[in-house]
Design a binder for these strands. Sequence first.
DNA 1: TTTCATTTGTTAATCTTTTAACAGCACAAA
DNA 2: TTTGTGCTGTTAAAAGATTAACAAATGAAA
Lengths: 205, 205
Amino acid sequence: MKLPGKTVQRLSRYRRILYKYRYLEEPYIFSHDLARLLNINPVQVRRDLMLIGGSGNHRKGYHVKELMQLIGEKIDSEKGRKIILVGIGKLGQAIAEYLSDREMFQDIIALFDIDPVKVGKTMYDIPCFDIRDLSQMIKKKKVSIAILTVPSDYAVTIAELLIDSGIEGILNFTSVRLNTPENVFVQDFDIITSLEEMSYRLSLK
Amino acid sequence: MKLPGKTVQRLSRYRRILYKYRYLEEPYIFSHDLARLLNINPVQVRRDLMLIGGSGNHRKGYHVKELMQLIGEKIDSEKGRKIILVGIGKLGQAIAEYLSDREMFQDIIALFDIDPVKVGKTMYDIPCFDIRDLSQMIKKKKVSIAILTVPSDYAVTIAELLIDSGIEGILNFTSVRLNTPENVFVQDFDIITSLEEMSYRLSLK
DNA sequence: TTTCATTTGTTAATCTTTTAACAGCACAAA
DNA sequence: TTTGTGCTGTTAAAAGATTAACAAATGAAA
Ligand SMILES: NC(=O)c1ccc[n+]([C@@H]2O[C@H](COP(=O)([O-])OP(=O)(O)OC[C@H]3O[C@@H](n4cnc5c(N)ncnc54)[C@H](O)[C@@H]3O)[C@@H](O)[C@H]2O)c1
Ligand SMILES: NC(=O)c1ccc[n+]([C@@H]2O[C@H](COP(=O)([O-])OP(=O)(O)OC[C@H]3O[C@@H](n4cnc5c(N)ncnc54)[C@H](O)[C@@H]3O)[C@@H](O)[C@H]2O)c1
């Protein structure tokens, strides 16, 4: 049963909130609490949970741990996905730290860079390898997702390398469009678009 | 006339593509070219352009410069918005460089940090000020948007300072939820959600 | 000049996502 | 035991976004 994309995004967020709540003495949480913490509508929370077959107590709300478990069953892949980060500069390091810091339900297994000063080091508990080892690692460890934070000039070359090595998804932070085959998902990030959209929204007020 | 949010986002992207094309000898571009460059449907491009009253030549496509101009009229605010970046660490610097690098239709006027090593310097052509000067600058220069990249522990305090100083929108990169009044827009960024959504999508294949 | 292939502009249909509406349960308090 | 409040679960309606379908325009080639 396919879940709506937006629902999956919210489930991911619910789970991280639940994670923080997991050891509080109150083992239950209300849909309106989750909603408030994400600035959304409580109905939407309940609807999302309904879609994954979640059920709460009419008086106490949803059982925190039970719900975390259920969300995991629905959105995580059975074996857990392996993730790598390519290009460990300013942005790559910020992301590496961010991801290693918090409870992730995915596995960042390696960083890659071309700079000999970085290669061989362990940063934020994640080992950094030479870009020449990228292909082998992807194949051997069955890495499914790569976060791409190399300088734009190298984006296309590295993306081709990733694809040839069998990567399935790329989170692309470079401003370069990647020409990928159908079966490789790409998600582009772009702060300028967000800035301009916010600017437009402000103008409407 | 209010444009759909998604359309505004795409218009922002069209414009950046057009910008690259502006001095090529061919002054026209087809909807399917724009579409291909963004991995979207050409009908969608035409529909977006229709919404802002754009019109193309049935044989040559859209006039690049004319279209750039038109998009600007529709999505930019008359006076141009001022933007600041708060917290110039790994992520903040990456964003500062990224934004100063490319043609922006918004104005990054200042960086703010608490670290005396950074304060007073000019980074990527943008001057960095002490966080104590934040409030005054926002009021004096009528800054409308802040990009928040301070450590999570400081997020709430700095956000309150921003709001009290009259900021209208915040792009929030910290993992902390900001409790803002109705009239202040917040947009949260979160790579974990994107990773988990991609992971889910890969599982569907 | 006429034909033809190609692209725009627009309406309608479809698909997706959010919100409204409300029945029914659970528990606390009377 | 009964009543009332405040939740959940679900269906239906509304809103938002994408895609299909096709008429009309253009200009190149026949
Ligand atoms: N989408 C956004 O909003 C956004 C924001 C900021 C930066 N960016 C982009 O992210 C990318 C990284 O930015 P940054 O500030 O971290 O740059 P950076 O220069 O600080 O870091 C780049 C890193 O990549 C490494 N590298 C270079 N060539 C490589 C190769 N062939 N293989 C592996 N590693 C290689 C370098 O050694 C360096 O460590 C840039 O493309 C930038 O434009 C995007
Ligand atoms: N949303 C995401 O996907 C994502 C990714 C990476 C990092 N982050 C978040 O972004 C933030 C910054 O990350 P980073 O890696 O750049 O951290 P960093 O430690 O490298 O940089 C933080 C900067 O903020 C400055 N600072 C500290 N206190 C300040 C204050 N009171 N006022 C002004 N400046 C102050 C520091 O001097 C430093 O320059 C963190 O909250 C991190 O969790 C989010």
